[in-house]
């Protein structure tokens, strides 16, 4: 099938698929970030059980393959009488895994601050919350711009899990599988999706670099 034919027949679906991938990516990343922050707070808290809990959480979701997690959500949870829509299952899988990495990057950002600045803030009479607000968070966020940019891209790649469950509308990967099993899409059908992914990744990367250049902390 030529590119013209392909686009006239599937053009709309490609656009829908692109938006589905974007939507999944944006939602997943937002959820991952919120969980990532919460887990990081537990990890730096002086409460030992929370630290252990957070550490186990990180190890589980850093190391579980996306497919394995998705199977559990889609096929195993119903046995526990927990029924989630396919979309929600993909969303959860694509949020939990990046959330573990998000916390790792934030921790790395926090560790670059150094104990000296925290002691300096303390000796000025700043309270714990003031130190967190004025010294820790701004620096941790600013030095995690690039890792978080990469995380956004890898979150997008994780959302390709959507192709493993029946979804309507399909995501970019699911659409290629669909076209190629129902028609002769060939290389072109694959390339269109691949380029849409790539273009998104490149744009995210560029924006991330731009932000990083603006907020990077000289050391």
């Amino acid at each position: 099938m030529g590119i013209k034919e392909l686009l006239s027949q599937y053009g709309d679906q490609y656009i829908q698929a692109l938006f589905t991938t974007w939507k999944l990516t944006a939602f997943s990343f937002a959820i991952a970030f919120v969980i990532g922050v919460a887990v990081t707070v537990m990890r730096i808290s002086p409460v030992q059980p929370l630290r252990v809990f957070a550490e186990i959480y990180i190890q589980i979701f850093r190391n579980i393959p996306g497919a394995s997690l998705l199977m559990l959500l889609v096929y195993a949870l119903p046995y526990l009488d927990v029924l989630l829509s396919y979309f929600v299952c993909v969303l959860i899988a694509a949020s939990l895994i990046p959330s573990a990495f998000c916390s790792e990057y934030l921790m790395a950002g926090i560790n670059t601050i150094g104990t000296g600045q925290i002691e300096a803030a303390r000796s000025l009479g700043l309270s714990f919350m003031q130190i967190i607000r004025r010294v820790v968070i701004p620096q941790a966020l600013r030095s995690s711009v690039l890792p978080l940019t990469n995380l956004l891209v890898s979150t997008m790649l994780t959302t390709a899990l959507a192709s493993q469950v029946p979804m309507n509308p399909r995501d970019l990967t699911g659409l290629v599988a669909h076209i190629n099993t129902h028609a002769v899409g060939g290389v072109t059908a694959f390339l269109i999706s691949a380029l849409l992914y790539c273009a998104t990744a490149v744009v995210i990367g560029q924006v991330g670099n731009m932000i990083d250049r603006k907020v990077r902390i000289l050391r």
Partner: peptide, 12 residues
């Protein structure tokens, strides 16, 4: 290209 495309798409 290889960094921006999901593994699943390559598998398909």
């Amino acid at each position: 290209f290889t960094r921006g495309v999901p593994t699943l798409l390559f598998i398909y």
